[in-house]
């Protein structure tokens, strides 16, 4: 059976096409004002990559912050469940998934069968999110893809005093104007964000093994700092971490809506 998952995140839209549990194609794109077109475009690209026609897709499941914006879905599913599903399918030793996305940090615990146990998220404040890193990097003119290289060069990471992502942006600009190296600033921002993620992670009393998902996980310097702080090793999975959600949604589609078919909601 062929199914599709679309993950409408706060910063990116991702789509994944799955046939009998195997990934056939995926695509991702920045969100923009015309969200309908972005969703349609990403879906089309993923279908093209998979060499599949839209009518061959038996079921479509959407997830993420904007899940409801996707039309003609079989059902929608929360992103913590989808990311956990995706990660577990790639490696059944995973018990905890920390999804570090554009605006939300979510940590999900799953049991040895991959069943969702509990989740925690930063739902009040964007401190520690990918957006925090993105805004800071932009303010000090470091391309997002080079953040890790810059951070590695830092000798004396700057300690960010603002907890608010909006204020951190002006704080880093002030620091640059006072002649501080942008390498030290970006290292400090990464440290602050990893600290937030680590706190959330400790709160859920996470079990090994741990997988990192989301756009932030693709920044190696972030993953390194997170591992140092929590003194845990994270497992790297054979898929870009941004795609766990869309992949998980497509897998959910294969099985049908667990809430509708009488399965227990935890």
């Amino acid at each position: 059976m062929i199914s599709a998952g679309i993950d409408v995140g706060t910063r990116f839209v991702k789509a994944c096409i799955v046939k009998d549990g195997e990934v056939m194609g995926w695509a991702g794109q920045d969100v923009s004002r015309d969200i309908d077109r972005v969703i349609a475009g990403v879906y089309k690209k993923a279908l093209e990559q998979a060499g599949i026609k839209k009518r061959q897709v038996k079921k479509l499941v959407s997830t993420g912050y904007g899940a409801k914006l996707v039309k003609k879905t079989s059902f929608t599913m929360s992103s913590d469940r989808c990311a956990a599903k995706g990660a577990f399918a790639l490696d059944p030793t995973i018990r905890t998934v920390l999804d570090c996305g554009g605006l939300f940090l979510t940590v999900t615990a799953i049991d040895e069968k991959g069943v969702f146990e509990r989740a925690l998220s930063n739902d009040k404040c964007a401190a520690g999110s990918g957006k925090f890193l993105e805004m800071s990097a932009q303010a000090i003119e470091i391309p997002f893809s080079s953040i890790s290289q810059y951070a590695e060069l830092s000798r004396e990471p700057y300690v960010i005093s603002s907890n608010c992502a909006v204020f951190a942006e002006s704080e880093v600009i002030t620091q640059v104007n006072h002649g501080r190296n942008n390498t030290d600033i970006i290292a400090g921002v990464l440290h602050s964000i990893a600290g937030r993620a680590a706190t959330l992670f400790e709160r859920i009393q996470a079990q090994d093994n741990v997988a990192l998902g989301g756009g932030l996980a693709a920044v190696p310097a972030f993953a390194d700092r997170f591992e140092q702080m929590t003194e845990r090793k994270t497992v790297s999975l054979p898929m870009p971490p941004q795609n766990f959600g869309a992949f998980g949604a497509a897998l959910m589609a294969q099985q049908g809506d667990p809430f509708k078919e009488g399965s227990r909601r935890k």
Partner: peptide, 16 residues
């Protein structure tokens, strides 16, 4: 939402 950045997201949703 209380956080400016979450509010921004909420505004975008209304724009969508």
């Amino acid at each position: 939402n209380k956080c400016s950045i979450f509010m921004e997201l909420e505004v975008m949703q209304h724009v969508y």
